[in-house]
Amino acid sequence: MSFDPSSLTRRALLAAAPAAGLLGLAPALAQGAPRVVSLDYGLSSTLLGLGAPPVGISELAGWSEWVVEPAMPPGVAELGISSEPNLEVLARLKPDLILATSWLDAQIPRLERFAPVLRLETFIWTGTPILEAAISATRAVAARIGREVEAEALLDRMEEVFAESRARLAGRARKSAALIHFWDSRHVRISADPSLFNDVLLRIGVRNAWPESTGPWGFQTLPVEELSRISDPEALLLVFEPVPKDVFRTLDRSPLWRALPIAQPGRIRPLPPVLLFGMVNEAMRFARLVTEAMEAEA
């Protein structure tokens, strides 16, 4: 994602001043950008948002499928699966910094032999709303690699996206939605509180039609008939793509599904995939896609 100077705000400029000072004090860091390895999609995408592409990430192969945007530039090394990043590749990359989530706690002592590890809490519910956790993790990463200006710019851009979405949806009648992903024709994953998606919905003025809050992961897995518990008559059903081939074919033969109010034609909208455990970039993508889906004509 290219850096757009026009989006710089006063706050970002203020924040940038001490960062520039820091850069002056640390020439080693300023000369060549630090070689960063990231072991989490959200953190990798944040690095791109800060204009500091990583030298290697885990699960590069699935990037375009799960994260979609921003695109990962060529030349980034693949480290394999997140939970067990390839140490031989890591040793050859000679990184200056490794970004990891608390998810990798068991491996952190081993990783620290190759480079300092910055451990961040991003998607696990620890008492802070997920979006706030993502914002502070973005700032922490930026501070560590001397990219505070870019961080504030990124966060400002996020606020702008939220504001724009909120404005576009303000006039619409249907302002609540349930977010589901079909595992198969009988089971769905439904997004709830606490999750990044839920926090973003709040920011853009959309009610989550699913009334319950969940465990630490921000979603529940349920049989399809549980959708009858959604009572809001105005709620839309946003269905994450891709939907397995057999789902609607099977459901169309189910009297229960055909009678389900929220599943009536006109209330179901497709939603392109968004990374479930993402950070700021994913929050923006989600806000934009939800807005477009809710504006779409049935």
Binding site: G62, W66, I81, W183, D184, R186, H187, R189, T221, P223, V224, E225, P244, L251, R253, S254, P255, L256, W257
Partner: peptide, 25 residues
């Protein structure tokens, strides 16, 4: 599954044997 765990949840559901159904079919 190990190499593609993100899309295999439906396989896990199948493996755990859910009887949920939405019709008599």
């Amino acid at each position: 599954i190990y190499l593609n765990d993100r899309r295999m949840v439906s396989l896990f559901i199948w493996g755990a044997g859910s009887l949920a159904t939405q019709s008599w079919e």
